[in-house]
Amino acid sequence: MRKFTTHAGVAAPLVRNNIDTDAIIPSVEMKRVSRHGLSDGMFAAWRYLDRENRVPNPDFVLNRERYQGASILLSGINFGCGSSREHAVWALAEYGIRVIIAVSFGVIFRSNCLANGILPISLPSELIEQILCYIDEDPQKHKLHIDLAKRTITATDDFIVHFDIGDSDADMLLNGLDPVDLTLRQDDQIRAFQQKDRLNRPWVYL
């Protein structure tokens, strides 16, 4: 599991509501039974003028000079809604995205982020607007610094935004824990539950 402690990077605005996972990685770009080789297809329908030949669309935010190397995305309500495909997160991670700041997230997408070392930060839209204003002048110079342990996004010394994230979600990211290993530590409890459950709900067991 990939750890997340602190990160500093260029932020790019994709401020639309309901950006769905089909938009993040179109189905047709999921060509192999693999988690890799997906970043090229990320946002393909928006990012390329000619998708077949990968001709970049100069207007798409991540193709613009000023947002080169962006590793932080800023978005609106319900980012990552729609299909459960984890490929959306794999594509973003492979492209180099480490943090997504949005008003809210699709639930499945959010948990996929945590599983892949991407930090999902929820903030009210007014704060996102303020961050947008700040980076707009020069995104390459106006980088954002994120500190997960402190739960802060720092723009300048006098512009620091605090965010909330559950302790266990933060722990997973900070320590890069493998959720399977973590759960298997509770194996005794799982066995005990199952034993009792077999008596209570025998019809469940095939």
Binding site: R35, S84, R85, E86, V89, I108, F109, S111, N112, A115, N116, G166, S168, D169, P179, V180, L182, T183, L184, Q186, I190, Q194
Partner: peptide, 21 residues
């Protein structure tokens, strides 16, 4: 019943459990 990502599917398959808020 709810939808999950591939990592959570792996988790559920191997442990029989999911960690949910």
């Amino acid at each position: 019943a709810w939808g999950i990502g591939s990592t959570d599917a792996e988790h559920a398959l191997t442990t029989g459990i999911l960690r949910i808020r």
